[in-house]
Design a protein around this nucleic acid. Structure first.
Length: 419
DNA sequence: TCTGGGGTCCTAGGACCC
DNA sequence: TCTGGGGTCCTAGGACCC
């Protein structure tokens, strides 16, 4: 039986089951642990003392207690008193993610890394005598035997349907969702399950008497456009399984680089706020330089203790990767819009990026910029060779504020909210 | 004693230009 | 002396993803 037609592309969506938790469990088993975290109620969670205490990933037994990703840890513990909580190890997760993509490249070069634990793979040209289901099962078995963790794989003719398919029953399952299966497999699902229907859009759809994906698919596109603008049309197309976006192996080119942090304590003085901003700029600008990028837009964001969020941004005359220039811009922005109320979160982001070899530099750049550049690159090199704490700005000493804030993860694609 | 940190994309309004 | 229309750029905010 052929549920796919020749002429269609065949796309797989590979999704690691409970990624952080599976990777943590696999690593621990390989290093002598006797307990498999996946088999007991457990979560990967942040540090509660520094106000990072939320659930980052949960085991399936933990899910049965109603524990949800993003939930605060004390709530999770209330739901399950003997919950095991382990801290995250992002460098391990990056290694596991890379090991997965290396394995997938054996099946097709048309691989798009969608997030740390999700990939799209276009296997149209790799099919030959095998069926898509055969290849998916082969990949699934190989990942399990070679890497030790399980994946869900969705198969269809486009990325949207493949992604929806991989979200069906878990873990360690392969599902198809070909266009002729859409009415039976996709349309009965709650509309909230559709990709791009989030916590704000779902209630708006309910008010329009749309509760299932099928009801959305059968709604009048013009009616949806009237309520949601162009987003309404996107929703209608997704509900009908329509998506023409290609698997893009080059999607990893960064459009923005940012660092943000929830501060361990409320920040209510400018001095402390600026130190946090500086420590964020230090890591974000060093990521910029190691990716050989310059930024032309600097933005600063804050979150107040009531969780309200504000941001300000400014475009520079000349793109730069210089820590001092970027920090001074961030400082000016912050001073312009902070009203002195206590903050629980600060962020810095750089965008309008361009390659440092092809960027237009200003004719007003003077010689001092070369000294600044060489200072930045010297500090980067020392930190690389001797650790991040080997060179630290004096203003941080005895401040209680870390001199560098935010992870330095290179060559890692960001997430896109659309396919 | 509230909810992390990394992203992308879209929209609306204002400034400014011709 | 009273005002059109089209276009681009910039900025803030809000939605979504994992």
């Amino acid at each position: 039986m052929e549920t796919y037609k020749s002429g269609n592309r065949i796309i797989l969506h590979i999704d690691v089951n409970s990624a952080f938790l599976s990777w943590e469990a696999t690593y621990r088993l390989q290093h002598g642990a006797s307990l498999d975290l996946r088999e007991v109620p457990s979560v990967v969670g942040g540090n509660e003392e520094s106000r990072h205490g939320i659930v980052l990933a949960k085991s399936i037994p933990a899910k049965k207690y109603g524990i949800q990703t993003g939930e605060v840890l004390w709530q999770a513990r209330n739901k399950c008193p003997n919950l095991i909580i382990v801290p995250p190890d992002y460098s391990l997760y990056m290694k596991c993610s890379t090991a997965l993509t290396d394995l997938l490249y054996e099946y097709s070069p048309l691989l798009e890394r969608y997030s740390i634990d999700e990939c799209f793979l276009d296997i149209t040209e790799s099919l030959r005598e095998k069926s898509p289901l055969d290849i998916a099962r082969e990949i699934s078995n190989k990942v399990k035997s070679v890497l030790g963790f399980t994946v869900n794989i969705g198969i269809s003719v486009n990325k949207l349907l493949a992604k929806m398919a991989s979200d069906f029953e878990k873990p360690d399952k392969v599902h198809t969702l070909f266009p002729d299966e859409v009415p039976k497999k996709l349309w009965p699902l709650p509309v909230r399950d559709l990709f791009m229907v989030g916590r704000r859009t779902a209630p708006k759809l309910y008010r329009l008497n749309i509760f299932s994906i099928g009801q959305l698919a059968h709604a009048d596109p013009e009616f949806l456009t009237a309520h949601f603008k162009s987003f309404g049309n996107l929703l209608w197309r997704y509900a009908n399984g329509i998506d023409n976006s290609p698997v893009n192996p080059f999607s990893a080119v960064a459009k923005g680089i940012g660092n943000s942090t929830t501060t361990p304590f409320n920040v209510d003085t400018e001095r402390e706020a600026l130190l946090f901003l500086l420590s964020l700029v230090e890591t974000a600008s060093s990521r910029l330089r190691s990716a050989r990028l310059l930024a032309q837009v600097v933005s600063v964001s804050i979150r107040k203790t009531d969780l309200s969020f504000f941001s300000h941004q400014r475009k520079l005359l000349t793109p730069t990767d210089n820590t001092e220039v970027l920090f001074k811009t961030a400082r000016a922005l912050f001073r312009e819009f902070w009203d002195g109320t206590p903050l629980r979160h600060l962020g810095v982001a750089f965008s309008s990026l361009c390659n440092d070899r092809f960027c237009q530099t200003s004719i007003f750049e003077d010689e001092r910029i070369y000294k600044k550049k060489s200072l930045d690159s010297s500090i980067d090199a020392i930190r690389l060779n001797h650790g991040n704490t080997s060179v630290v700005r004096g203003s941080f000493i005895n401040s209680g504020i870390p001199p560098l804030t935010g992870g330095i993860i290179d060559d890692y694609p960001g997430m896109r909210s659309q396919l």
